[in-house]
């Protein structure tokens, strides 16, 4: 369209997209979440080839391409922050009210970090390497928020 074209007839139309969907966690994802919910216990899956323990668990080691779905191992409810950021805006899809610390947490016994929320510290006190501990939710949502947050250990 040439610059300066006649815009007399141009206007904006409001639209909306509202559609239902369903997501299945699968066997591996379901066991991970129901164990957190029912036993307050966090489990990972170990790749016997590269010896990595994945939390959250996965059916396949994406590097070795090994089927590891049955190699469940227990990990600790404690771990350390390997990286973090501070979320400073509110939106309906976010799990907590801003500002809050969103961190990568490597649980003791795991080799991969889990993304979760750290509460109970001043925002400017959060640092890489700090020890944290899982605080489980009182009410279940059948999601990873059955761990409500992590708190300083």
């Amino acid at each position: 369209m040439k610059e300066g074209f006649d815009t007399t007839d141009c206007f904006l139309v409001d639209g909306k997209l509202a559609l239902p969907y369903t997501y299945f966690a699968g066997r591996v994802g379901s066991k991970f979440l129901t164990t957190i919910r029912d036993e307050k216990k966090i489990m990972g899956i170990k790749c016997n080839k590269c010896n990595k323990v994945f939390v959250p668990p996965r059916q396949t080691c994406d590097v070795c391409m090994e089927d590891i779905r049955d190699n469940w191992v227990d990990v600790q409810n404690t771990g350390k922050v390997t990286n973090f950021t501070v979320v400073r805006y509110d939106d309906k899809h976010l799990p907590k009210k801003a500002p809050y610390v969103l961190a990568m947490i490597q649980l003791d016994g795991a080799d991969t970090p889990l993304v979760h929320v750290v509460e109970g510290i001043d925002l400017d006190k959060a640092k890489i390497g700090m020890k944290v501990q899982a605080v489980f939710a009182k009410e279940t949502t059948n999601t990873i928020l059955d761990i409500d947050h992590f708190a300083p250990a």
Binding site: L17, F24, R27
Partner: peptide, 13 residues
């Protein structure tokens, strides 16, 4: 087996 049911709802212009 867990299942999550949601409605995506996005305003558009």
């Amino acid at each position: 087996l867990l299942v999550l049911k949601k409605i995506i709802s996005v305003n558009q212009k």
